[in-house]
Design a protein around this nucleic acid. Structure first.
Length: 261
DNA sequence: ATGCCCTATGATATAGGA
């Protein structure tokens, strides 16, 4: 089974890219983040024409997540249990579903903005609640394959950004953010490390500005955490940087994970 | 060449992204 995750930066605006990539990469399941459309506006019909069911969760301009599957899509859950709020609202940043016997959560972790911003403490609280969900699902699923994947907005180590000196006093690289992500391995998850198709590190994001992509000024901030049974079934994983090339693309590239289940 | 920011919004500026 082929599973993928992609921060698409508006699924409506990038629909042609999504359709082309589903056809060429042929994933069985695609987890999307930053769909930037309401649940109703998600392009369900267009993806159904390609043989995929959709479960979307969005409320408009910002955020939004979805799971698209051609191997079944059941037990859909929207939001984390007790998901932290920002400015009094639960934002559409998490959706879970079971696809072909694999439990998956498509996740868009808050950005954090600045280390002294309320959004940063929100980000840490969000990751802590995610670890609680993970522990709960590991226990409930009792060995069935499970993965938590998406845009974590955290670079796990210093080599996961093109130049760590640029990130002094920035979010995405602070010890507290990394420790909050490390709660998942502490709960029993295993990070699935993707291959890079070029260069040493499999970056997943490159800013639109200042030739960041051709200069490979990127960040590895989209991550996949598998349950032990999921991780041991992985046969390959890579970041498809080809999808970042050209105009009208997302600023993130998709991660592909192949598992033998 | 992978090439000099992009998204959605009751829009003609703004907030958010990372």
């Amino acid at each position: 089974m082929r599973i993928a995750t992609w921060n698409i930066n508006s699924v409506v605006n990038k629909l042609d890219k999504v359709e082309a990539w589903l056809t060429s990469a042929a994933p069985d399941v695609l987890c999307l983040q930053e769909t930037k459309c309401t649940t109703e506006a998600f392009p369900t019909e267009a993806l159904a024409a390609l043989g995929y069911e959709s479960a979307a969760h969005g409320d408009g301009r910002w955020n939004g997540v979805a799971i698209v599957s051609r191997v079944g899509l059941t037990d859909v859950v929207r939001d984390l249990p007790d998901q932290p709020e920002f400015e009094g609202k639960v934002e559409p940043r998490a959706i879970g579903a079971t696809c072909g016997g694999v439990r998956l959560w498509s996740l868009y972790i808050p950005n954090g903005r600045e280390p002294d911003h309320a959004h940063y403490t929100y980000k840490l609280a969000w990751l802590e609640q995610l670890a609680k969900l993970g522990a709960s699902e590991l226990s409930t699923l009792d060995g069935a394959p499970l993965a938590l994947l998406g845009d974590f907005n955290v670079a796990p180590t210093d080599i996961d950004v093109w130049d760590i000196s640029v990130f002094e006093n920035s979010t995405h690289v602070t010890p507290a953010e990394r420790a909050a992500v490390e709660l998942l391995p502490a709960a029993g998850f295993v990070e699935v490390a993707p291959r890079a198709l070029k260069y040493d590190v499999a970056f997943t994001f490159w800013d639109y500005r200042q030739l960041a992509f051709p200069k490979n000024r990127g960040m590895r901030i989209d991550l996949v955490f598998g349950s032990p049974s999921f991780a041991s079934a992985v046969t390959d994983s890579y970041v498809d940087r080809e999808a970042r090339k050209g105009k009208g693309t997302s600023d993130h590239a998709p991660i592909v994970v192949d598992i033998d289940v």
